[in-house]
């Protein structure tokens, strides 16, 4: 069975990112000529000042958010799938995104009752509070998971505990919802749909910088991840400290998910699907290739999904989560079917 050269694949992914990125700036409910978009992007004044505003203040932050969020979730998904040696593991598997939801639920749903004002009326302040709450919630759950990871030996046990923590968080959110005002529940539900559009201009810089620091850090774990593929016994025999490595990988993936979820809400599916896609495209399990591939493919797919969600007619009303699943599910199914066929032919 021949393998494609990874370089060609990477270049293609990179090109697709550039294309989708520009399309993200170009397409939307207001039609702006491509030349004007280009001009606005490089600091020039567009013929119509509104156009410049739309491109720079709305479309650019959104495209940037989609790009880094997709990359982060996919890298985290790859790490989770390897550390648990489970193809169904994804960024949400350890309850980290449920933790973020819990944090947001506390702030959104309780502020109405305690402070007497609905957070949804607070505007930007509310947004910042939600982001902070999500980060605190996600990191709290992650700390809990890392603590448990030190105690339990088996991966499966840890996985089950993570899923259980997720259920408990969801249950608490359910209780909070029951006691909350209707408009607060609505605000929470909207957050839960996930969106690349919520991150405003100032926040997107913070978000992008955070991810620009975190993503390279996750690349430091490629040798560890490759050894983990062999299973605990072999990895240990080859000199890997299995327990410490497991905690390092979980921490890295957890923080990535926490940050992305804080800014975009729980985005499902990308993190689960993209690593599978990359394994199928590059036909390798070497993380030195899979890691950059997942990063690029995740960014590209997220931009594409964002584009679909914003297609004329939907007017940005289509939740990104619906799009990721609608596009992602068939793609994964097709890839897996093709793989099965190839295996039979071999």
């Amino acid at each position: 069975m021949k393998r494609r050269s990874p370089v060609t694949g990477m270049v293609l992914l990179l090109v697709s990112i550039l294309v989708f990125f520009f399309l993200n700036l170009l397409l939307g409910s207001v039609s702006i000529p491509a030349g004007q978009v280009w001009k606005a992007l490089w600091g020039g004044a567009a013929d119509n000042p509104i156009w410049g505003n739309i491109v720079l203040k709305s479309r650019l932050p959104q495209a940037l958010t989609a790009l880094v969020a997709g990359a982060g979730l996919s890298v985290a998904g790859l790490q989770m799938q390897t550390v648990f040696r489970n193809p169904l593991a994804g960024p949400s598997v350890l309850g980290v995104s449920s933790g973020a939801s819990l944090g947001v639920a506390f702030v959104v749903l309780l502020s109405g009752r305690i402070g007497g004002i609905a957070l949804s009326r607070l505007g930007v302040m509310g947004e910042v509070a939600m982001t902070l709450a999500a980060i605190v919630g996600a990191l709290a759950i992650m700390a809990l998971i890392v603590y448990v990871a030190q105690k339990v030996r088996g991966n499966v046990t840890l996985l089950i505990i993570g899923v259980m923590i997720g259920y408990v968080a969801t249950a608490i959110i359910g209780v909070l919802k029951f006691f909350s005002a209707e408009e607060d529940v609505r605000a929470y539900v909207v957050w839960g749909l996930g969106s690349f559009a919520r991150v405003s201009g100032g926040q997107v810089t913070t978000f992008a910088i955070l991810m620009a620091i975190l993503l390279p850090l996750s690349f430091l774990l490629v040798k560890t991840l490759n050894l983990m593929l062999l299973g605990d016994g072999y990895a240990r025999n080859l000199g890997l400290n299995v327990r410490r490595s497991r905690i390092a990988v979980i921490t890295c993936a957890g923080i990535l998910v926490a940050v992305v979820t804080a800014y975009c809400g729980p985005i499902s599916f990308l993190g689960l699907a993209v690593p599978h896609l990359c394994r199928a495209i590059f036909r390798t399990s070497d993380h030195r290739i899979l890691m950059p591939a997942s990063l690029l493919a995740g960014a590209s797919l997220a931009l594409f999904c964002n584009l679909i969600a914003r297609m004329p007619g939907f007017e940005g009303a289509l939740p990104v989560n619906s799009v990721t699943a609608l596009i992602g599910a068939p793609v994964v199914a097709v890839v897996l079917f093709r793989k099965r066929k190839e295996e039979i032919q071999e």
Binding site: R85, L229, G233
Partner: peptide, 14 residues
């Protein structure tokens, strides 16, 4: 020490 274990390594695409 090098080991060969009983557990079957579930590897794909390597």
């Amino acid at each position: 020490i090098g080991v060969v274990l009983t557990e079957r390594v579930a590897l794909q695409n390597m």
